[in-house]
Simulated assay, not measured.
Amino acid sequence: MTSTALASTALTLTGRRLRISLRSPDALITALMLPIMLMLIFVYFFGGAIDTGTQYVTYVVPGAMLLCAGFGAAGTAVSVTEDMKDGIIDRFRAADIGGVPILASHVAASVLRNLVSTALVLAVALAIGFRPQAGPPALLAAAGLLLAYITAISWLAAALGLLARNPEAAGGFTFLMMFLPYPSSAFVPIETMPSWLHGFAENQPLTPVIESLRALLLAQPAGHIPWLALTWCTAITAASVTLTSILFRRRTR
């Protein structure tokens, strides 16, 4: 199959995944609204008790956007597992459709859904007082980094979906992605956490992504942190793409 045919097939399958998402409005609304609700809970319930040196909504928005991406990616793992379980992928294989367009369609649909949900989170944040200070170059850099993270976590979710044998197990596997923002600098400064947690919180992948987004959006010095965040995103994407390729061949023998 030529590269043009691969792209056309992946685009068609992406449309299929988006249409399936629209047929499950309850799951779609939950994925869109839950991160917004959590952000509002943190801002209005806990924000007054947390000293971050700035308005709490300003501090929490980058973490809320990554939390949103985690919820969206969890649905990708489940949808990959469902396609494997229901025999849909076997039918695609019988029609001479390879693993690349099939998995790429799941990832592309995940990225598009996540961009919409992230835009909603940002819109609500602006409505409750978030005011980015960055100019156009920094805003574009923040958007590019966020896109890189969403792509990375979507490919990781696709790999977890191939590892799982049923949708329930896929949902369990992706719990880690939804949990990781909490032991990071997303919602509270790391120095306020127990000392035994500092090492993990400072060096896990999400912390440099969050710190980079915060610095870029608020026009603060970022140093080398955005490059570290981009390195993490690239490494996760490369490892996940490789893993999905191996797992797909094994599951479709």
Rank of each mutant, 00 (worst) to 15 (best):
P62Y: 07
E82N: 12
S79H: 06
C68W: 14
D51E: 13
G48Q: 12
M84L: 15
E82C: 11
V80Q: 02
T58G: 09
S117V: 08
G63L: 00
D86M: 11
P62C: 08
H106N: 03
G72D: 03
T81E: 01
D96N: 13
G48H: 08
T58E: 04
A104V: 04
E82L: 14
A94E: 10
D51N: 12
L38H: 04
G72S: 06
V61Q: 01
A49S: 10
T81P: 00
D90I: 08
H106A: 02
V107E: 03
V57P: 03
I41Y: 15
Y56H: 03
G63V: 00
A69C: 09
F92P: 02
G72V: 07
L32Y: 08
V107H: 01
A108H: 04
S117F: 04
G72E: 06
A95P: 03
R113A: 03
S79P: 01
S110H: 08
S110D: 10
A95D: 09
V78W: 02
V60M: 09
T54S: 15
G63P: 04
G70E: 10
L34G: 10
A31K: 00
A95R: 06
G47R: 00
I89D: 01
L103Q: 02
A69L: 09
I41R: 11
F46M: 13
G99A: 10
V111L: 13
D90P: 02
S117M: 12
Y56T: 03
T58F: 01
D83N: 11
H106L: 03
I102D: 01
D86E: 12
M84H: 14
